[in-house]
């Protein structure tokens, strides 16, 4: 009966091998990175996130954005990501140290979002896109996130945060307006914060073209 312990040790050792390499090593090496101070502004790279953006990460996770959108720019040596303007430089481990859950993703059914805050700067566009994707991008197959918005009767003055430029069949009936919930605002704040365009020692920005 003394074969059993030996077999168990063998089985556990082979497994521990990969556990050390793919779990313990990254835990030690990547799990304790520090932001890099920016000498010009006194800030840090990657910049700190606003409270709304942190809350937005939760909305991003709860609604499964990750199943269609990745958040990573692969290096030019391995892909055409940079030529396709997914981002100005490859993303590195330090880029993700502000995220509670890291949304690297494995699908690009929709475009990569690692730098969506650089491409889309207008919160109203993002709100319209979330409310009814096909109102701004006719060929989009993204589901509508109408449930993150409230349709309400206009009381006196229209709300300052109501969605603008909703047209056609997506427009609310006269006398009504569409306003984002806290979740929608948080999600948009998070998307706007996604900008990996700062230099890091291990990933400098390419020289200006």
């Amino acid at each position: 009966m003394n074969k059993l312990p030996l077999f168990v040790i063998g089985v556990l050792c082979t497994f521990a091998f990969s556990w050390l390499g793919l779990v313990v090593y990254p835990f030690v090496k990547l799990g304790h990175l520090e932001p890099v101070p920016d000498e010009e502004t006194g800030g840090y790279f990657p910049p700190t996130l606003s409270g709304a953006a942190v809350a937005g990460q939760q909305v991003y996770a709860a609604n499964g954005c990750i199943y269609c959108h990745s958040q990573q720019v692969r290096p030019a040596s391995l892909s055409t990501d940079i030529a396709k303007e997914v981002g100005p430089r490859r993303t590195v481990a330090r880029d993700y140290l502000r995220e509670r859950t890291v949304f690297l993703g494995t699908m690009r059914t929709g475009p990569d979002l690692a730098n969506v805050g650089l491409r889309k700067t207008d919160p109203n566009w993002l709100h319209r896109h979330l409310y009814e994707p096909r109102s701004v991008t006719p060929w989009s197959i993204m589901p509508s996130y109408r449930y993150l918005y409230k349709m309400q009767k206009i009381q006196g003055q229209p709300s300052a945060n109501a969605l603008r430029e909703l047209s056609g069949r997506h427009a609310p009936e006269p006398g009504y307006e569409v306003v984002p919930t806290d979740d929608a605002n948080a999600l948009v704040a998070y998307l706007l914060s996604l900008k990996r365009n700062y230099p890091l020692p291990e990933a400098p920005l390419p020289a200006a073209k």
Binding site: V23, P26, K29, L30, L33, R94, L97, T101, V102, L104
Partner: peptide
Amino acid sequence: QGSAQGAV
């Protein structure tokens, strides 16, 4: 913290 999550 960070991208170690992806590896795990």
